[in-house]
């Protein structure tokens, strides 16, 4: 356990100056900043809407980009980034000749990737709330302060986090096994396209494809109110089919990866 915590600490220490780490913070910040600037400069068009509609518009703008495109790509990138740091420096051999159990090294790295994705999605929720409230203060015409959906946003992003774990675990293993960027990236991209198509055509079993999970997670949330009528309440169901599949894939790939690492020769 000690070796695991030391490995985790070292993961943070060595990656804190890399793009992989900073992307986790900058991505939500920049995206939400841009949407906020859009709202700030279009106060006249938006000022007649009720607080709830504003919040839905505001967070929806970010969520749509995130769920539909960015989150799967981001998971692919993070999985690559935490492994490539070792591939590039040729440090697998020294990591695996430390007096630390192999499972500690492996699971610390795995958890670190999970933490980065979690951090990003948490920041998405927090920045959404913060920037929304800030807009409400700066431009009282925008009635952001009339409505509160902090808890809902946290739930939505938590669901997105869970739905990304399947992709993250598969990509983590691919990036661990392959040195180059193109193979895991290419496979990830193709699977993601397949996921998009399966959701697009409303395939009943789209939920078995991990790469479709973030989109499905969003889709399942959109259906909670009828089109055309203004919703009065948003209900988030976190544990849907796709989230269960995502968690199952995550668990299976994590354990499989563990056995692969035990047996794998280090070049």
């Amino acid at each position: 356990m000690k070796g695991f915590l030391l490995s985790l600490q070292s993961e943070f220490y060595k990656s804190r100056k890399t793009l992989g780490f900073w992307a986790s913070i900058l991505l939500p910040f920049i995206l939400i900043l841009l949407v906020s600037i859009g709202f700030y400069t279009h106060v006249d068009k938006l000022s007649h809407g009720p607080g709830m509609m504003l919040w839905l518009l505001f967070s929806g703008a970010v969520l749509n980009i995130m769920g539909a495109l960015l989150l799967p790509m981001y998971a692919i990138f993070i999985a690559y980034s935490v492994n490539s740091i070792e591939h590039k420096a040729d440090t697998w051999k020294s990591l695996f000749s430390l007096p630390i159990a192999k499972w500690s090294v492996y699971s610390a790295k795995f958890l670190y990737a999970v933490i980065l994705v979690f951090l990003t999605l948490l920041l998405f929720a927090l920045f959404s709330i913060g920037f929304g409230d800030l807009l409400g203060v700066l431009k009282p015409g925008l009635k952001f302060l009339d409505y509160h959906m902090e808890w809902t946003l946290l739930q939505i992003y938590f669901k997105l986090f869970l739905s990304a774990l399947g992709i993250l675990s598969i990509q983590f293993l691919l990036s661990l096994l392959w040195t180059d960027f193109l193979k895991p990236m290419g496979i990830g991209f193709v699977c993601f396209i397949a996921g998009v198509i399966s959701v697009g055509v409303n395939w009943d079993y789209a939920y078995i494809i991990p790469y479709a999970h973030p989109m499905l997670a969003l889709k399942s949330m959109m259906g909670t109110h009828k089109r055309g009528t203004p919703p009065t309440q948003i209900v988030i169901d976190i544990f849907t089919h796709d989230v269960y599949v995502s968690l199952a894939v995550f668990a299976v790939v994590f354990v499989a990866g563990f056995f692969i690492v035990q047996k794998k020769s280090v070049k």
Partner: peptide, 10 residues
């Protein structure tokens, strides 16, 4: 072992 394993960005 072989070339030293060093993180270039550190």
């Amino acid at each position: 072992i072989e070339q030293p394993a060093i993180y270039g960005h550190l």
